[in-house]
Design a protein around this nucleic acid. Structure first.
Length: 369
DNA sequence: TCTGGGGTCCTAGGACCC
DNA sequence: TCTGGGGTCCTAGGACCC
C-alpha cells in the first residue's frame, strides 16, 4: 500500500490532501512548532510523499521531522482504523485468488501462477479492486519470485505497476536489479550493508560479482550463500497462506527514563500492566505459552532480555507477571531504563503429548515411568 | 540527534540425555 | 587421565522487517 497510514488518515481528512503530513506516535494533531515545543520520544511511522520531499521518512525521530519540515502536520496513529482498511484490501485481493501471504499490515505476497491473464492487466485489475474496497492506492511488482517482486513493487510508487523478469530474466536482472544498492535486498539491513561497503560491495551487481566463498567466509555459511543467491535474483520461497503466531508481547517506552531501584514502584506497575495486556491478548486469541520473557532497554540504548520456561503453558495474568518479575530481578539492571516489555512465546497445542500417550494404551504408559 | 511497537528468524553455548 | 557422537531444550543476543 502507498504511504498506508498517511493515506488512511487523508481519507478522513481530505482537506489535508497535497500537504506534508506525518503520522507518528504522538497525542492530538500538532504543528511542527507544537511538536518542537513538547518534544516526545516518538518516531515517524509514515509520511506523505509531500513530507518525504523534505527528507522525512519512517523511523525518524518526530522532533527531527519537525525540524526538517516546519510546515508538516503531525497526526497520531490510529491502528484500529488501519487494521480495518488492511482487512479490506486483503479481502479485495482474495476475490482474485486465495493464494495470499500476509506480510504485516500493508503488504502481501500473491501467487499468481495459476491465475490466467496478462500480468500487467492483472495488476491493474488488483489495483482497481483495492481502490474500490478502500479508496487507497497500492503498488505492485510481478516477477518470478518474492525477492524480486518486493523490489519491483517499489520501483514506481505510488500507484506503480512493474513487471520484471518474465520475458527476459537475465536482461532485467542486469539492467534493473544490479544497479540498485545492496541494501535494497529484503534481508540486507544496515549492519550487513556497512560490512559489505567495507569490502567494496555497494550495488547488487557488486554483490553478484563477489566470490561466494569470500561471502561465506565473512558472513557465515547460511547468510553468505543466501546473499549470493539473492544477488542473482534467485529465490525459491513459496507463498505461505497460513501461519501460526510464535509470540505475543507488549512493550512501552517511558516519557522519562526510570531508575531500576529509585523508580521501582512505577516500573513494577508497568510490568503488571503489560503482563495483563499480554494475558488478555493470549486469552482473546486462545493461545498459551510456557516461555515468558522480559526486555529492557537501558539509557545507552542497549537491550537486555531474560526469559523463563514454565512446566506447562499458561495464559494466566498472575503467572505471567510472576515470571516477568523473576526475570527482571535476574537482569541486575543498574542503569536507568527507557523501555520495558513482556513477551510470551506461544506454544502449539500440546496435542502431540495426548496422541503420543493415551492412558488406555499400556505401551505408551511406559513413557511416564 | 535521537532513536516506537510488534514481530520473525538465526546463532551459539551449556545442560542434559542416550 | 583423557575423554565420541548424536540429539533436545533452554537461554541470551542480534539482525532484520513492517
Amino acid at each position: 500500500m502507498d504511504a498506508f497510514y498517511a493515506s488512511a488518515e487523508l481519507l478522513r481528512r481530505p482537506e489535508l490532501k497535497g500537504q506534508p503530513v506525518v503520522i507518528a506516535g504522538i497525542g492530538p494533531m500538532r504543528t511542527a512548532a507544537q511538536v518542537l515545543a513538547h518534544p516526545g520520544r516518538g518516531v515517524v511511522t509514515t509520511a506523505t510523499y509531500e513530507a518525504r520531499a523534505f527528507g522525512v521518512h519512517s523511523a525518524m525521530p518526530t522532533v527531527k521531522a519537525a525540524r526538517l519540515c516546519p510546515d508538516c502536520i503531525f497526526l497520531p496513529v490510529d491502528f484500529s482504523q488501519y487494521r480495518r482498511l488492511s482487512q479490506a484490501f486483503k479481502e479485495a485481493v482474495r476475490t482474485l485468488t486465495p493464494e495470499v501471504e500476509d506480510r504485516g499490515i500493508d503488504e502481501i505476497y500473491i501467487d499468481l501462477t495459476d491465475v490466467p491473464g496478462d500480468a500487467f492487466r492483472l495488476a491493474q485489475d488488483m489495483q482497481q479492486r483495492v481502490f474500490a474496497a478502500t479508496g487507497l492506492t497500492c503498488s505492485i511488482g510481478i516477477t518470478p519470485n518474492k525477492l524480486l517482486s518486493k523490489m519491483a513493487s517499489e520501483f514506481n510508487k505510488p500507484r506503480g505497476i512493474t513487471v520484471l523478469g518474465l520475458d527476459d530474466f537475465t536482461r532485467d536482472l542486469h539492467e534493473k536489479i544490479w544497479p540498485l544498492p545492496a541494501k535494497r535486498i529484503n534481508g540486507i539491513g544496515p549492519k550487513a550493508d556497512m560490512k559489505l561497503a567495507g569490502l567494496g560491495i555497494v550495488s547488487i551487481g557488486d554483490l553478484a560479482a563477489a566470490d561466494p566463498a569470500m561471502l561465506i567466509a565473512r558472513f557465515g555459511k547460511s547468510y553468505g550463500a543466501w546473499m549470493h543467491e539473492a544477488a542473482h535474483g534467485r529465490d525459491a520461497r513459496p507463498v505461505v497462506t497460513i501461519s501460526e503466531p510464535k509470540s505475543r508481547s507488549r512493550e512501552t517506552t517511558f516519557e522519562d527514563d526510570l531508575h531500576p531501584k529509585h523508580d521501582w514502584n512505577t516500573l513494577a506497575a508497568w510490568m503488571v500492566k503489560l503482563s495483563k495486556q499480554v494475558a488478555e491478548d493470549l486469552k482473546k486469541r486462545q493461545l498459551k505459552g510456557r516461555t515468558i520473557g522480559i526486555k529492557i532497554r537501558t539509557d545507552d540504548f542497549k537491550i537486555i532480555t531474560r526469559d523463563k520456561t514454565l512446566a506447562t503453558p499458561t495464559d494466566d495474568e498472575r503467572e505471567i507477571r510472576k515470571a516477568a518479575f523473576e526475570c527482571f530481578q535476574r537482569t541486575n539492571a543498574k542503569r536507568r531504563l527507557r523501555l520495558i516489555g513482556v513477551r510470551v512465546m506461544v506454544e502449539g497445542d500440546k496435542e502431540v503429548d495426548s496422541t503420543k500417550a493415551s492412558p488406555e494404551d499400556p505401551h505408551t504408559m511406559v513413557l511416564f515411568e
